[in-house]
Amino acid sequence: MTDNLMSQIDAEMQRLGWTVDQGREHLLKYYGKRSRLLLTEEELDNFLLFLQLSD
């Protein structure tokens, strides 16, 4: 499940034109974590939803 979430997050970040640094900044600001690997599955779901709703 987590691999699928990571793939979806990658696709959404690419769609939005986000860099790795932009993603890292968002994670630090909202989750206090530097890497997606440190997020819980619920946090990954939340991050994916945020990206999907962004344009």
Rank of each mutant, 00 (worst) to 15 (best):
D45G: 04
G17F: 10
K29V: 04
L28V: 14
Q8C: 05
M13C: 13
L53K: 05
G32H: 06
L5Y: 04
Y30E: 12
Q14M: 10
L5Q: 13
N46P: 01
S7P: 03
L44F: 09
H26D: 02
E43L: 03
K33W: 01
M6A: 09
N4G: 02
D45E: 15
T40M: 12
L48C: 06
D55Y: 11
R36C: 05
G23W: 00
D10S: 08
Q52T: 05
L16H: 07
R24Y: 02
Q8M: 09
K33P: 04
L49R: 12
D3T: 08
V20N: 14
N4K: 11
F47K: 00
L44S: 02
Q22D: 10
T19V: 03
M13Y: 05
Q8L: 11
S54Q: 14
L16K: 05
T2S: 10
S7L: 09
Q52W: 01
L28K: 13
T2W: 11
F47I: 03
T2R: 15
D3A: 08
L53W: 03
R34G: 10
M6Q: 11
Q22P: 00
D21E: 15
K33G: 04
L16A: 11
S54W: 09
E42M: 10
D45Y: 11
R34F: 09
R24K: 15
Q14V: 04
Q14I: 03
I9L: 03
F50Y: 10
L49C: 07
E42G: 08
E25H: 11
Y31N: 00
R15Y: 12
R34Y: 05
W18K: 09
L5W: 03
S7R: 15
A11L: 14
E41T: 13
L37K: 15
G17V: 02
R34T: 10
N46F: 00
T2G: 13
M1F: 11
S54F: 10
W18G: 01
G17K: 06
G32S: 08
A11I: 07
Q22H: 08
D55E: 14
M13Q: 11
R34C: 03
L53H: 04
Y31S: 00
G23A: 04
Q8Y: 03
L38H: 10
R24E: 13
D21I: 05
L38T: 06
D45M: 08
G17D: 05
L51M: 10
N46L: 06
D21H: 07
L38V: 07
L49S: 14
M6P: 01
E12G: 04
L37Q: 12
W18S: 05
R24N: 04
T2K: 13
D21F: 02
R24M: 08
L49D: 14
D21Y: 08
K29Y: 02
L16D: 01
K29T: 12
K29M: 09
F50I: 03
S7M: 07
L28D: 08
M13P: 00
L37W: 12
Y31A: 02
R36N: 04
D55N: 12
S7Q: 15
L39M: 11
S35L: 06
L37I: 06
T19W: 10
N4V: 08
R15C: 13
L38M: 14
F47M: 09
A11E: 12
H26P: 00
T2Q: 15
L27I: 02
L39Y: 02
N46I: 01
L37R: 13
T40N: 11
M6G: 03
L49I: 12
L27D: 01
L28R: 15
G23C: 02
T19K: 15
L48Q: 05
T19G: 15
